[in-house]
């Protein structure tokens, strides 16, 4: 079994992003970038399946600027076997990413594709579902447990009321939620080893995919800021304020 994992380079989750003054986008100059946290979970899951003897090869793929190679190297240092970068400076929206990934899937023929449930920059939560649709594959989104069977995979999903388990025929697609696993820390020797692992660089045109954006971002602005209120000195004062001032209890 071969597993393809999509890894996205995003602004680190600790950074508090700001809109550019001219409203054209967000400040990304000199901002720390990292692998999307959900994608670390996706990579970790693939590695655990490999360690359990259920998968042979793990391919990590990223789409975007040259620096996405760093993200792929992180996946390789975690344990993925080889990497693919589809390199472009163009803005990639989820449908375009899904189309590029579909082309990569047709080339690589994995049995399982794992993505993060959501990228923490654009918060779209779409790419996996779109890719599954384009491939005509079943999807197990927001996964908190993945159990491979014979020609099937059972995925336990985090849904609004609790958990739901679905059985999917392979090949299938999974998107990782927070509770699927705890990604490992990368060890220094592995970072060195990862440098020697193969990383192929392609262009969208090589895959014959139209990546024209369908949405135009007209402006980007910060929402009105919430002001801090007051500190109360006691529980009694708190209850009094909530009852007599805010009228909420």
């Amino acid at each position: 079994m071969k597993i393809l994992v999509a890894v996205k380079r995003v602004v680190d989750y600790n950074v508090k992003v700001r809109a550019k003054a001219d409203g054209t986008g967000v400040e990304t100059a000199n901002v720390k970038m990292s692998m999307n946290p959900f994608d670390e979970i996706a990579v970790e899951e693939a590695i655990r399946l490999q360690e359990a003897g259920k998968a042979q090869e793990i391919v990590a793929i990223s789409l975007g600027v040259t620096a996405c190679q760093d993200t792929i190297r992180t996946a390789l240092a975690m344990g993925a076997d080889r990497g693919i970068l589809v390199e472009t400076d163009a803005e990639l929206q989820p449908l375009a990413v899904a189309k590029l990934l579909k082309a990569a899937v047709e080339k690589e023929k994995p049995d399982l594709v794992i993505l993060g449930k959501q990228a923490i920059d654009d918060d779209a939560n779409q790419t996996g579902q779109m890719l599954a649709a384009l491939l005509g594959w079943p999807q197990g989104t927001f996964a908190s447990k993945v159990e491979l069977g014979d020609g099937t995979v059972n995925v336990t999903r985090e849904v609004d009321g609790g958990l739901e388990t679905v059985a999917l025929k392979l090949p299938a697609l999974v998107t990782a939620d927070l509770r699927l696993n705890e990604p490992r820390f990368v060890k220094l020797p592995n970072i060195m080893k990862a440098k020697k692992k193969p990383l192929e660089v392609l262009k969208p045109a090589d895959l014959g995919v139209d990546i024209a954006p369908r949405l135009v971002t007209l402006k980007v602005q910060e929402p009105p800021k919430r002001q801090a209120g007051i500190k109360v000195g006691s529980v009694a004062e708190l209850v009094d304020k909530l009852h007599n001032e805010a009228h909420v209890i």
Binding site: V11, K16, V17, R18, A19, V26, I120, D121, D122, D123, L215, V216, T217, L218, K219, V220, Q221, E222, P223
Partner: peptide, 10 residues
């Protein structure tokens, strides 16, 4: 987008 730190008009 970005955990609600920014609002995008699309």
């Amino acid at each position: 987008i970005y955990a609600g730190n920014v609002l995008a008009t699309v």
